[in-house]
């Protein structure tokens, strides 16, 4: 088995997929770092101060002003109200929600990319693990070996798990190093509040507690890893089912993008919460943001995603072992 996995790893490295994805990430992270840098400069100029308390207070006031406008949807109003109470909580407890430094950037970046950017990167690797064997014709050579088919597929799946982990590590290292050049490398021990829950549209602070930022980031990456793995598994299934890599990627892309659009407008369509793409924003539960549909929680999203992934795995294996290859 180890040899099979090793063999698959060699193929993956030869194809330079990991390298390409890493380079894409490096370029994007540089762009976001620059954008973030400009933004913080602008805020500083507008307020004439570097005091985070003043900045945070101003953010709260800005949101309150938006809330007092009449042309604002109920959904959005709820989201904003929760954000205000959370920021007020930070302010009242004298904790800076965005201690300047690279770790804070990493934290914000993983939160923003968990739904779309990261799954897309994973998809690039996962989508052609099996289907590329079809398109290059090597699948026949592979299957004529005296190894059972399920073992071959399992070795490919393990390779996927490994490359997901590898890419996420690259994602973390790159965003830390690149943003660190601009913002400085300190801030691992800055306190972060977690344990906010949203109940009936109100922020509940009963379970709130402080943890150091490095722990928070590790927890977020753990959840991001799970999300990436689920997305990878689904792409893997498509790669088994659909011979054309492009078609498989297209389907997955459509799902992921529809997820981001849907989560901003599904609150009245309750059964949409069983769709996997609505459940990708797992890090929001740590942060204490209102979920897109009432009643969603970390446990719920976790089970939904796990069920989707398990089903995808079963389908992949059944299909791969039964399929006629010609």
């Amino acid at each position: 088995m180890i040899n099979l996995v090793q063999n698959e790893m060699i193929k993956l490295v030869r194809k330079k997929r990991l390298l390409v994805v890493t380079i894409i990430m490096a370029v994007l992270i540089s762009m976001f770092t620059y954008a973030q840098f400009r933004e913080s400069e602008r805020v500083q100029e507008r307020l004439g101060t570097t005091d985070w308390r003043t900045t945070l207070q101003q953010q709260i006031i800005d949101i309150q002003n938006r809330l007092s406008g009449s042309q604002i949807s109920d959904e959005w109003r709820k989201q904003l109200e929760i954000r205000v109470s959370q920021q007020q909580y930070y302010l009242d407890h004298d904790i800076n929600p965005a201690e300047p430094g690279a770790p804070t950037f990493v934290r914000g970046f993983i939160e923003n990319s968990i739904q779309l950017l990261l799954p897309l990167m994973i998809m690039i690797v996962a989508a052609d693990l099996v289907s590329s064997e079809h398109s290059t014709g090597t699948v026949k050579i592979l299957l004529t070996r005296p190894v059972q088919r399920w073992k071959i597929l399992l070795s490919k799946y393990l390779t996927l798990v490994l490359s997901v982990s590898f890419l996420l590590l690259m994602f973390g290292i790159l965003s830390y190093v690149i943003s660190g050049i601009v913002f400085g490398f300190k801030g691992w021990n800055a306190p972060v509040l977690t344990g906010f829950t949203v109940e009936a549209g109100e922020l509940n602070t009963a379970g709130t507690h402080l943890i150091p930022q490095w722990q928070y980031i590790l927890m977020e990456f753990g959840l991001a890893w799970f999300v990436s793995l689920v997305v990878g598994t689904l792409s893997f299934m498509l790669s088994v089912l659909i011979r054309s890599t492009a078609a498989g990627m297209g389907v997955m892309l459509a799902c992921l993008i529809s997820g981001t659009i849907l989560s901003s407008m599904v609150s009245s369509w309750e059964s949409a919460k069983y769709l996997f793409m609505i459940n990708l924003r797992m890090s929001d539960y740590l942060q204490g943001m209102a979920p897109p549909i009432e009643g969603m929680s970390l446990g719920f999203s976790l089970s939904v995603l796990a069920i989707w992934a398990a089903a995808a795995l079963v389908i992949s294996f059944v299909s791969f072992t039964k399929k006629d290859v010609y």
């Binding site: 798990v161 490994l162 982990s165 590898f166 996420l168 590590l169 722990q215 590790l218 927890m219 977020e220 990456f221 753990g222 959840l223 991001a224 890893w225 799970f226 740590l286």
Partner: peptide, 12 residues
């Protein structure tokens, strides 16, 4: 890294 992320998820 796989082990690390699993640990992170468990902790979360």
């Amino acid at each position: 890294s796989c082990l690390l992320w699993m640990f992170g998820m468990g902790w979360a």
